[in-house]
Write a protein that binds this DNA or RNA. Structure first.
Length: 482
RNA sequence: CGGGGCGUAGCGUAGCCUGGUAUCGCGCCUGCUUUGGGAGCAGGAGGUCACCGGUUCAAAUCCGGUCGCCCCGACCA
C-alpha cells in the first residue's frame, strides 16, 4: 500500500494529522483569502445536523430566531468599555461603500451584543415585554493572527443567543440553563464529554459579569472551549439604555445573557473521535449513518446484489439515513477505505455469498468490528447498533478524558512537567489571585479552563494553591488550550 | 508582527548547487481483463515551473524584488 494514501498518524504529528484529515475527508478547504475556509458539503452536512439539534433545543426552551445585520456602527462597539477593549483589536472595518468614504465606519460584527441590545431597547418598555429570548444563526468575523481550519478562522458560522430579563437571578438561571443545553448537546449528540464551570476574570467574556464554559479534551490532551454562556448583568443595558417599567411602577435596566457555539464544534468532533484511518462521526450527527457497499463479479450478481441493496434502502427509509455506493469504477476494498476516511458510522457489506445466506455484514466504523446480520431483521439490528455506537463513542471519549485527568496533591514541578509533556486536565487548588494564574500561564502556557461545577469537583477539595501554596479558595481545572 | 518552512500538472514530488525547455508516484481519460480490504495491463490527456524585473545566445535553475500559503510563538470561539 502506498503511504500517500494514508493519513499522517496522530502520534507522528497531531497537528498535521488534523489538517490532513479535514482536507482529505473533504470537510473543508482553504480559501484564496488567508485565514478563511470553505466548508464543503461533507463538513456542512454535519453542521446542518448540529444546527437542527441545537435549534430544536433552543426552541424547546422558549427562544425564537431572528436576524440582525452584519454591519455595526463603529460607535456601538465602543460604548461598553471592556467590550471595546476585548474586540476592537480584532475587527474588520468597512470604510468605503459605493466608492465613497463612509461618514462612520462600519464594523463587521465580531459578535452582536451591541446591535442586538440597541434594538432590544426599542422593543422593551415594560416588565411584560420580558423575558425577551432571541437567537440568531450568523457568520461573524474576528481578525485573528493565527488561524486553523474550523478551530479559528477569520470568519466563522455560529449561533448567538441574546436574552433580556427583569432580574439578575432570572438572567443567571438563563445563562446556566443554556450552558446545560450545550452540555446536553455535546454529550448526547456529539458524544463529546465536557467539563462545565465558571471562567476566571482573566478568561471572562469582555463585558460580562460571569462567563460559563463547556471544556472538552482533545486527543492531544489539550482543552477546547466548546461553548460559552454569559451573564452580562446590566452592563450592556446601561450603555444602550435598555430599560423597562417594573411591576411596581419604577424603572430598571434589563439583565442580559448571551451564549454561543460555532463551527469550531466540527473541529472538536474531529479531534475527539478521529483516528488514524480518518473521521468517526457519531451516528446522530452523521449525514449518512450507513453506507451499503455492494459486491459483485458478474452482471447477474450485480443486478441481484443491487436489487437487494435497493430493497434494503426502501425498508430503511425514514428510519436510517443510508447511501448505496454503486460505483463500478472502484473495488469494494477501496470503498471501505474511503468511507472509513469519511467517518460513516456503519458499513453494510452485501455480496452474493451474503444473499445466499439471506444476510449482510455490518461493520462498525468506531471499532471496525464486523458482524453478520440476517436481512429480515437488519433494520432493527442496525437501529440498535447505531444507538450502541453513539453510546460507546461517548463512553470511550469520557474514559480517555479521565485517563488524562489528574486530581489530588501535585507539586508545581510535576505539574509543569506534565504540561510540557503529554498534557492533561489538572484539577488543583487556586488561591483566587490573578497573579498566580498569569504566572502559570507565562510559565507553562496552561490556563484555568474553568472553576468546575460541583459534579466535576474532586471528592476532597484541594487545600492549597498550585502555584503559591496559600489556601485554596476554589478548585480549578488547568490545561493547555486551543 | 517575530522565527522556521514551502510555492514545479488536480494532489504529492524530482530537477536548482554545476543554466540547454521538466522527473516520478497518486489521481484523471479510453480499452480489455477485474471486483469479499486501497486491481492489472496497454494507450492517452494534462505545465504561462507563484509573480515582476535583471544577467545570458539560452533561466524552473543564477541575481534583485514582490506576493501567497503552512508550521511554531504572542492574541483568541
Amino acid at each position: 500500500m502506498s503511504d500517500e494514501k494514508k493519513l499522517t498518524t496522530r502520534a507522528a504529528d497531531f497537528s498535521a494529522w488534523y489538517n490532513d484529515l479535514v482536507l482529505r475527508a473533504e470537510l473543508a478547504d482553504y480559501s484564496p483569502v488567508r485565514g478563511c475556509m470553505v466548508i464543503r458539503p461533507d463538513g456542512y452536512g454535519i453542521w446542518e445536523r448540529m444546527q437542527r439539534a441545537l435549534d430544536d433545543m433552543f426552541k424547546a426552551t422558549g427562544h425564537r430566531n431572528a436576524y440582525f445585520p452584519l454591519f455595526i456602527p463603529q460607535s456601538y462597539l465602543q460604548r461598553e468599555a471592556q467590550h471595546v477593549e476585548g474586540f476592537a483589536p480584532e475587527t474588520a472595518v468597512v470604510t468605503h461603500g459605493g466608492g465613497k468614504l463612509l461618514e462612520e465606519p462600519l464594523v463587521v460584527r465580531p459578535t452582536s451584543e451591541t446591535i442586538i441590545y440597541a434594538m432590544f431597547a426599542k422593543w422593551v418598555q415594560s416588565y411584560r415585554d420580558l423575558p425577551l429570548l432571541i437567537n440568531q444563526w450568523a457568520n461573524v468575523v474576528r481578525w485573528e493572527m493565527r488561524t486553523r481550519l474550523f478551530l479559528r478562522t477569520l470568519e466563522f458560522l455560529w449561533q448567538e443567543g441574546h436574552t433580556a430579563h427583569a432580574t439578575h437571578d432570572e438572567a443567571e438561571a438563563e445563562a446556566r440553563q443554556m450552558l446545560g443545553v450545550y452540555r446536553q448537546f455535546m454529550e448526547s449528540w456529539m458524544a463529546m464529554p465536557v467539563v462545565t464551570g465558571r471562567k476566571t476574570d482573566a478568561e471572562r467574556f469582555a463585558g460580562a459579569l460571569r462567563t460559563y464554559s463547556c471544556e472538552a479534551m482533545m486527543q492531544d490532551n489539550k482543552a477546547l472551549q466548546a461553548g460559552t454562556s454569559h451573564n452580562l448583568g446590566q452592563n450592556f443595558a446601561k450603555v444602550f439604555d435598555l430599560k423597562f417599567q417594573t411591576e411596581s411602577g419604577g424603572t430598571d435596566f434589563a439583565w442580559n445573557t448571551s451564549w454561543g457555539a460555532s463551527t469550531r464544534l466540527i473541529g472538536g468532533l474531529v479531534m475527539t473521535h478521529g483516528d488514524d484511518n480518518g473521521l468517526r462521526v457519531p451516528p446522530k450527527l452523521a449525514p449518512t449513518e450507513a453506507v451499503v457497499v455492494p459486491i459483485w463479479r458478474t452482471d447477474e450478481e450485480k443486478s441481484r446484489v443491487l436489487g437487494a441493496a435497493h430493497a434494503l434502502r426502501t425498508e430503511l427509509t425514514g428510519r436510517v439515513r443510508v447511501h448505496i455506493d454503486a460505483r463500478d469504477t472502484m473495488k469494494p476494498g477501496a470503498k471501505y477505505y474511503e468511507w472509513e476516511l469519511r467517518g460513516v458510522p456503519v458499513r453494510i457489506e452485501l455480496g452474493p455469498r451474503d444473499l445466499d445466506k439471506s444476510q449482510a455484514v455490518l461493520v462498525r466504523r468506531d471499532t471496525r468490528v464486523k458482524q453478520p446480520v440476517a436481512l429480515d431483521h437488519l433494520a432493527a439490528d442496525l437501529e440498535a447498533l447505531l444507538i450502541t455506537i453513539q453510546d460507546e463513542m461517548l463512553t470511550a471519549a469520557r474514559k480517555r478524558r479521565e485517563e488524562h485527568s489528574v486530581r489530588g496533591a501535585i507539586t508545581y514541578d510535576a505539574f509543569r512537567q506534565l504540561m510540557e509533556g503529554e498534557g492533561a486536565f489538572v484539577y488543583a487548588g487556586w488561591c483566587g489571585d490573578a497573579a498566580c494564574e498569569a504566572a502559570i500561564k507565562d510559565d507553562t502556557k496552561a490556563t484555568i479552563r474553568v472553576l468546575p461545577d460541583e459534579e466535576f469537583r474532586s471528592p476532597e477539595a484541594p487545600r492549597t494553591c498550585l502555584k503559591c501554596g496559600r489556601p485554596s479558595t476554589s478548585e480549578a481545572v488547568w490545561a493547555k488550550a486551543y
